[in-house]
Structure formats: C-alpha cells, structure tokens
Nucleic acid binder design. Structure first.
Lengths: 354, 354
DNA sequence: CTGAAAGCGCTTACAG
DNA sequence: CTGAAAGCGCTTACAG
C-alpha cells in the first residue's frame, strides 16, 4: 500500500491519467476558476488561497495543457522564427539565442524557413501564422526588411519582432544589430596598420546589413582621409564563390590593394583563396578582414581577423522583447541598444605592404 | 452589396470571424460530425456528400484548428527535433530535410537542443514531450544513441525515429546513416593513390558514427593488406582544435604518414593547419580526407576531398517515416536503406609522397 | 475575493 | 452512411 501512495497520478500520451485543473481544484477545495486565476497570476486571489493552490500544483507536478489553454485564449504558446538567411551558423546561433530567453517560459520555438521570391510567399506566411495562432514571430534579415510582411502582421494582429541593421520599424518591434559600428571597427583596424589602398567586397544589395557594413567602413575611412574609390568596390553576394571572384578582380587593380574588407566571413575565405591563386601571401602582401566571426573564420588559413556579430545575444533580446510584448507589457526598453559588434584580431591582417 | 458577397469570412488573431467546422456543416446542410469525417478521411461518407463538403471547404479556405483538433485527439500536430550535435550545418541540414517531408502535412517543427550531460536531461525531455503532447520526435546522434531516451519514449507512448549510424533499434524506429560505407570509400581512395602509411583521427567515442567511420576505413584497408597501427590512430573530438593537435602528433611519427583521414571536416581543416605549421604542403607531402562535405570542406585551402554525408535526405526520410508511423500506417519500408555517403574528390589528396 | 455557466473548435463513443 | 450528446482542459464574461 505504501508503495502506491507516493507517486502522483501519471500523465502522458500513453493513456495514463493526467493531472488537470479539476484535480487541483478538488484537492484545494476551490473552483477551477480560482485555480485558473492562480495559474494566470491574477491579483484577485487571497494570499492564503494562492499559497495553498501553488503548493498542490508543485506537489502534483501539474502544468496546464498548452493546447486547452490556447484554445480558450484563441492563441497558441508557440513562437515562430521566420528566416531566409542561408547561413547555417547564423540560423543556429539565432535559434539558440531565442531559446535562451524562452527557457522556462512555457513557449516553444517553431522554425519556418521561407523564400521571399516565391509567388506564394506572403500567402503561405499568413496561413502559417493564422493556422498556428502564433503567439508571436521573430523575423531575421532579409525577410525582416520586407514591409509587406509587417503589413500582414499588423492586419492579423500578431506580435512580432524584426531584427535588422537599421530601424525599419517602431522601437517596440525591432532589435537593431549595429553593423555600422562593426564596419567602422574594421576600417579603424586597417587604417591603424597603415593601409591606404583598400578593397571592399559588399554583400547582396537586398541585405541592409551589407549597406550598413559598407557605410560604417566608408565613414571611418573618410574620417581618416582615406578614400575608397569605386574601382575598389565590388558587389558580392555573401558567398564563398563571390568572395573569390571579387577578390581576384580587386587584386588585378593598379595599384594593388594592400588590404581587403569582405562584408562577411564566407567572402573573406574566398578572398584568401584568390590571394593564394594570385601567388600572393596573406597577410604579408594583402590583409583580409571578414565579418561575423562564425566558425569558418578560425578554420581557414590564416585565421581571419573579423568583426564578431553577436547573433545569439540578439536572438535572446528579440525573444525577451517578444515575450514581454505578447504578455501585453509596456515595452521596457524603448530602443534596445543592441549588442555591439567587436573586432577580433587574428592572423589575416598585418602592416601595409609597400 | 456585390462587394460584400465574394470574400469569405476572414479568419485571424485580430478578432475577425474565422470559418469553423460548424460553418461548413451549415453550408453543406450536414452535421459537423460528417464534416469531421471528411477532414479525417473516413471511408464512411457517401461520395457525393464528400465532394460537396470538399468543394465548400476549398471555397471558404477552411482549415481545421490544430489546437482544437489536438485537444480532442489528445495529441498535438507538432514534431520535435531533439539534438545535441553542435555542428550548425548538420543541424540546419537536418531541419531542412525534416521540413521537406513535412511541407503540406499540417505538422510543424519544434526544435529542442539538449545537453545529455545535464542532471535534469531526462526529466526535461519527458516533460517537453508530455506537455506538448508531441505527435512524434526525431532524435539525432549522439542523443539518439541513448537507450534511456528510448525507454522514456516507449513508456510515454510517443512515436519516434532515431537517426544513427548503426541499427540501435527496431527497423521501424530508425534511419541508418551508412557511415561505414563512407569510411570504406575514404580508404579506397587513399589506397588507390598509393598511400601505405596512413594516419587516422577519430571523433569522440560517445558518437557511434566515429566508430563506424573508423570501422569502414579499417576494413577496407585490411582488405587491401594495408595496416593501420595504433601509433597512427589518434582520438579527436570532432572539433577543429582536436584535428589540429592530433594531426600535429601524427606528423611527428616516423615514418611520417603520407595521408590522414579525419572523421569529420572540422578536424580535417585542423589537420590542414597542422600540416602548414609543420612546414609541409598538402597534398604534395600529406594528403587529407575529411567527412561530411559541409561548407567548410570547400572553403579551406586546399579544398578538401571528403565523404559527403546526405544529412538533408536522411532528415527527409526520418520525417516521412515518422509521419507514416504516427498516422498508424504499417511501416512501408522495413529497413530504410538510408541514403549512401559518397566520396567527393577535391584538391587535398594526391599520389603518395615517398 | 470566489464560483456556476457557457464556450473555444474539434473528436470519440454510441445510436440509428 | 449520418447525427445528437458529451467531452478534451482550459478561459471568458457575468454574478455575487
């Protein structure tokens, strides 16, 4: 008999009995509505009653069914991550950051890669959110920069956070990744090493981050009276291959640049290959700076000097803000400062060759 | 007036009216139970009735609320991905593969990274599945190799698929990634290039894939009368750093190996660095073969000869099988053949130096 | 501060 | 082949 006393009723998919709000109500000698009030942190419960109920909840290990709660609330406890950035490390770091903030909150993360070019993109997006009655959604570049998406979200009335490198929305709906500051850091580093003839490889124009990284870089150079002429600016597409071809092009310029800043690590890795193919050495002949500080930056040779982009931290901030938003809280931090990118110096940069 | 005829009642979070099963029933002049039968593909509906209802469903754009359905069914339409593999590219490829098979199925993907070492791991895992009443769960190495996890899943009665490099479970619950075949392919390639003194860097012993990759490699060498002596076997941990240090060790052996097989690309990239630091050249002095064919394989210098691991395809197969499983179908393919790894030859391998 | 009734949108037995 | 009743586990008005 003693054996059967300790374990609380088991719950599960297998058909065992699950503890419900009714069980708690019965055990506490109150109505289930009162239990509901405790669960939802209503202030209209006598302190003593609340404590008794909470004790029973803890004892039984009860946790309210998100599906039932969702049905009654007319919304789920799911947060969606909608993205079209193909970089795996970005995606995973973002997911980890979101999860950091969601842990213990009762929310779960549903991932939703998308293709902004598809004709059914907007319809699919809307359908996804409506069907799942998402509690909120986090958007990352470049889909976060699409204003049609914002329009749909507002029409539906779904909470959302857009992650972007410029304030494309009201402060309450955005987390800004300060890529411009990162671009400045890269320029400062190269200038301090004495570089004057510098090449730049941009990302695709559809990414605002590409413009920001370039903008910060140019601003800092200008402040230091170093010019970046059109001949020394190539348009890449954030891929290894474009980094390689753009760098090859830059290396053919006269005078040859003594340094190249690529707007992300993938392209910087490609630039390294181009330098080698041209029979040159990095950093002796040409220095290279990347952006992101993903794994690839430390795996190539020489390890890349790069600008660390705090993706995971940004993800955490986004989820925190979103949860506060859907809980109806007044947005605490008007304009989130955004974690700042920081220069990481490794072996791909050195004094300017001359 | 005509303006108000066309648009079906709008649905959404914003408070607009959503089409429900009751609307469809009324429109079709049947009970909602009959509509439910059509939704759930019950065979007990007159063909004519079914067609009429389906037409109305298509017309109104109705789609049943997964939350309400889930509450009645006592399970959700969520599939969980539980993983502890830290490699971002593996994780993303796996997610994409799962999503490939889930598209249009009505299921959504919830991601759940975990740490098998944490003391609360099993309890958290159980809680996650029970709370969400997951429709099913996909497990990847190394957490997929944990038999305690299987025990929990069986006790709860949750459908699951384990992805592993060896048949650790009944055929209906597993997708096998044939890493052993990949190991053989690597050995064959090196043997054909004339290598006889070969070094091997393993992954961590906690990953079965590490043993399989090594096993296949050794088997093939043995078949060709090439021996792999203990001195030339190092234990790494699937990381760039361990690849570097293990390779440095191998290069100090006398005679020096003319080739190194690393059990994944990260470690192979590390080996490339070790070779360079030792003042040697790849592939002239030492050839290197990796495993996975992730992005890093083509970004390093020289681009890596490696064994392509079909992660995305495996993910797709896993989700297909899981969906069939939770739909109660008899498992079509007893033992899924598993997509086969294939050698990708690039520039890091060449004829044996002597 | 607390509760009885009705409802969220579906499905499962149970009849016919 | 079809339907009326009850229920999944929770919450929202509405009373008191």
């Amino acid at each position: 008999m003693a054996e059967h006393e300790a374990p609380p009723p088991r719950r599960g998919l297998g058909g065992e009995k699950k503890t419900t709000i009714n069980d708690i109500a019965r055990l506490a000698g109150v109505s289930k509505k009162t239990v509901s009030r405790v669960i939802n942190q209503s202030p209209f419960v006598k302190e003593e009653t609340r404590e008794r109920i909470n004790a029973i909840i803890a004892e039984t290990g009860f946790s309210p069914d998100p599906q039932a709660r969702g049905l009654a609330f007319r919304r789920s406890f799911l947060i969606g991550l909608v993205y079209d950035n193909p970089n795996p490390q970005y995606v995973v770091n973002m997911q980890l950051g979101l999860l950091d903030a969601m842990r213990g909150s009762g929310y779960e993360l549903v991932v939703h890669p998308c293709n902004r070019g598809a004709p059914t993109f907007l319809a699919d997006f809307r359908r996804f959110i409506e069907r799942q009655k998402l509690s909120g959604v986090v958007l990352t570049p470049s889909v976060s920069e699409d204003d049609r998406v914002k329009a749909v979200l507002e029409e539906i009335g779904c909470a959302y956070i857009r992650i972007a490198s410029v304030p494309v929305d009201e402060p309450s709906h955005i987390i800004v990744s300060n890529d411009r500051v990162g671009g400045r850091a890269a320029a400062r580093h190269l200038a301090e090493l004495g570089h004057k003839i510098i090449g730049f490889i941009s990302g695709p124009p559809s990414f605002r981050s590409s413009h920001e990284r370039r903008g910060g870089f140019e601003d800092e150079l200008k402040d230091r009276k170093i010019s970046l002429t059109p001949d020394y600016i190539m348009q890449g597409a954030y891929t290894f291959e474009t980094g390689l071809s753009c760098a090859a092009e830059l290396l053919s310029r006269t005078p040859r640049p003594t340094a190249i800043f690529a707007a992300n690590d993938e392209m910087a890795a490609g630039a390294l290959h181009a330098i080698r193919r041209a029979g040159l050495t990095c950093p002796a002949d040409v220095s290279v700076v990347g952006f992101d500080d993903f794994q690839i930056a430390s795996s190539v040779w020489p390890p890349l000097t790069t600008v660390r982009s705090p993706t995971r931290e940004i993800g955490r901030m986004a989820a925190e803000k979103l949860i506060a938003l859907s809980a109806g809280q007044v947005q605490a931090r008007e304009a989130a400062p955004g974690a700042a990118p920081a220069l990481v110096v490794r072996d791909s940069t050195g004094p300017a060759a001359n």
